[in-house]
């Protein structure tokens, strides 16, 4: 356990070393949120609500979706791909730890850093500028944090899958980029899933992506009520568990396939 905490700490330190990169990040996210806010204001154009969400809820949804993204988002898929291509996995294989767990911890270190230095100040700025509504209900906050915990797990497992695929494809930049688009689109980051046509919603309800962004954002905006919240959390928990299987299987196959380049 100690080694995992130490790894989170180290990753945190590394992010701190490059923190100036993040100031520009806050700006970019704020601009994104602003742009969506004006877009949605135009679409609402005086209507009370669309698909059960008021304009304030919509703004809050967009803001929180982007801020949550700062936490669950990480680059470990790219990192794994790079470590494989450059032969750095060799070093990872002579270390007495499970590689994938360690990668996940690095992602977590990154996520915690961004949550503290990025999402929190970002959310304060956004709340001052745009009409977002932060819930006063402690329960909502607790469910929200549980929910983004699952978001992190699901998104990271998908990243691991994309990263490990490098063992078989060798060059999987395309796959990683495609994955990113799919997640931004199907997770409800850009558009709440309730806005998609019914058939698309049906398909997406069988996919893990809604657990990444749609569920925590809906919990935060209180778009989900009562038992809907629990159903949503259970959905996330189930996907977190199910995804362990393909990650594990692919990793076993990959290790057998492992060829270390160079040296």
């Amino acid at each position: 356990m100690g080694k995992y905490i130490e790894m989170i700490r180290i990753r945190f330190l590394m992010m701190l070393a490059y923190r100036t990169n993040y100031y520009s990040g806050i700006l970019i996210y704020s601009i994104n949120i602003g742009a969506y806010y004006f877009l949605w204001s135009a679409i609402y154009g005086g209507k009370e609500n669309i698909q059960g969400l008021s304009i304030t809820q919509m703004t809050t949804y967009i803001a929180v979706a982007w801020m949550a993204r700062a936490f669950y988002f990480n680059n470990i898929d790219r990192e794994i791909a790079m470590e494989i291509k450059e032969g750095k996995v060799a070093i990872e294989m002579v270390r007495p730890y499970p590689y994938l767990n360690m990668k996940m911890m690095q992602g977590l270190g990154e996520g915690i850093f961004r949550l503290l230095f990025f999402s929190v100040p970002g959310m304060v700025i956004v709340a001052l500028v745009f009409p977002v509504e932060l819930s006063a209900n402690a329960g909502t906050w607790i469910y929200f944090f549980i929910s983004i915990g699952f978001s992190f797990i699901i998104n990271t497992q998908i990243n691991l899958l994309a990263g490990i695929a490098t063992f078989f494809l060798f060059n999987n930049d395309g796959l990683i980029r495609a994955k990113r688009v799919v997640i931004d689109l199907f997770s409800g980051l850009i558009l709440p899933l309730s806005f998609y046509p019914m058939w698309a919603q049906n398909i997406m309800s069988y996919l893990p992506f809604q657990g990444i962004s749609y569920i925590p954002s809906m919990i935060f905006t209180e778009g989900f009520k009562g038992s809907q919240v629990f159903e949503a959390l259970i959905n996330q928990a189930v996907w977190s568990a199910i995804l362990i299987i393909p990650v594990y299987v692919l990793w076993i196959l990959a290790k057998r396939q492992l060829v270390v380049q160079g040296g």
């Binding site: 180290i10 590394m14 040296g263």
Partner: peptide, 26 residues
């Protein structure tokens, strides 16, 4: 293990931080 051609230390952090992490790992 030492591979002369590749580093096993973490590039962006101080050497002693790497040592500290390895101490925990081992």
């Amino acid at each position: 293990v030492v591979f002369g051609q590749r580093s096993q230390l973490w590039w962006d952090i101080a050497v002693q931080e790497s040592f500290r992490l390895l101490k925990k790992i081992y």
